[in-house]
Design a binder for these strands. Structure first.
Lengths: 227, 227
DNA sequence: CGGCGCCTTGAACCAAGTCAAGCTCTGTGG
DNA sequence: CCACAGAGCTTGACTTGGTTCAAGGCGCCG
């Protein structure tokens, strides 16, 4: 359908919309900027943009999940964020991306010209304030991530589960990401994540009907374990 | 001189200006919001605001250094940021402070009404964009903090020194904060920070003429150690 | 059925934490 | 000017939570 989704630039790295996006932001929606850009599809593990590339676009997840990450000089990968449906990402301080972005599973992403949104924000105060709100919310989330990274392995895993549960309906958490993704977000190894989940299951705090599906059986106990 | 600086509310926790602040932002200054609020003095270790208190004011450091932190349920303290002269802090997502703030050394802080700045931002697009710029810069810094916290102890300490060196003139870094403050910022113990500094000195990468003064003797080697 | 990702489990190891002295400033009072 | 006290910093010996290395299991798809 949207074949341009997989078009890549000469370096084979960045997917771009095939035509200039016609953009408008309806700030009456109150909650988030609606990028009237081109919806694009990204396959599982497909790169959306790479670190140090020019930051030309802003992105809003329609469906699917995106990981934002950086590779450290020793080859380890640190995931900064998982973005779910509704999240806007791709903001940058300067004109290059500080992180890379990849689709974790097949995803649809709304892609809009960053310069157009910025120009609009310069004219329209409502848009500017929405950008501020989005950035402040993201700042808050990253501050929470810092608090996570100084806790014990069990506290990190439990906090992660509770955060995911907060954004999912029903009692079970469906995880689109692999154990490696979780480990790289929490600053742990895949083995530690796996062992911790197993031990939480033994303690009847959670159930693991399948590796990507986790049932929180005792939310109160989990909240206590999250420190 | 500014005796109101030490006035505290009934709970003895929050210092407030004695009179309603007359506020104006001159966004022509281009770089930062000038809170034309009341300059206040805070003594070493004096609280500026506490976690969960209503976020009524915004703050800009005139001189001195401020630590922004949270106490974890197990009693450990995690420092989110050190703010130096010129930095603006006190932004919040909702109407309460998510963190506490204390002066690390005797400091002068410009204090302005948050609501006044927000009202101004609603009218004046330039102010709104400056707030966005400040928040985006802070987001960037916190993202860097996340990257720090997954590194080894030596990498964290070296990165910290290089960051401080970047904001100080001359070849020596003057640290206003204690080893405990550094440890709580880096997610390490005071002993590990101390040992790491000693070992860097043995390796001639730094010199420690006094405990609060650190000379970077081999910046290239340090950059390599920062990973 | 066989192959390949992905996940779990086990055993050994190590970086950083903990516990415990002891040292070095700095300011204060005799 | 020295004695003392206290806070802040360093150092040493031991412990431990999490990593590393290695093997094996599970589920899915051709």
């Amino acid at each position: 359908m949207l074949t341009q989704a997989t078009i890549r630039n000469p370096q084979g790295r960045r997917a771009v919309p095939t035509e200039p996006t016609s953009l408008a932001a309806s700030h009456q929606l109150g909650d988030s900027i609606d990028l009237m850009g081109a919806p694009m599809s990204f396959a599982r593990n497909e790169e959306i943009y790479g670190e140090r590339e020019p930051a030309e676009y802003l992105y809003k997840v329609i469906s699917g999940t995106v990981r934002i990450y950086k590779i450290l000089s020793d080859g380890r990968r640190q995931i900064q964020a998982f973005h779910l449906a509704g999240d806007v990402f791709g903001f940058e301080l300067d004109d290059e991306h500080a992180f890379s972005a990849e689709a974790i599973c097949d995803s649809r992403i709304l892609v809009g010209k960053r310069s157009a949104v910025m120009a609009l924000a310069a004219r329209d105060n409502g848009v500017a304030r929405q950008l501020l709100a989005l950035t402040t919310r993201e700042l808050h989330r990253v501050q929470g991530h810092v608090m996570l990274l100084v806790k014990t392995a069990q506290e990190r895993v439990v906090s992660f589960l509770l955060e995911k549960a907060g954004r999912s309906d029903g009692e079970a958490v469906e995880l689109p990401m692999s154990r490696q993704d979780i480990a790289d977000y929490l600053g742990l190894t895949i083995e530690t994540v796996s062992r911790t989940l197993t031990s939480l299951e033994s303690a009847s705090a959670i159930a693991l009907p399948s590796s990507r599906r986790i049932v929180l059986r005792n939310q109160a106990a989990l909240s206590r374990l999250a420190s």
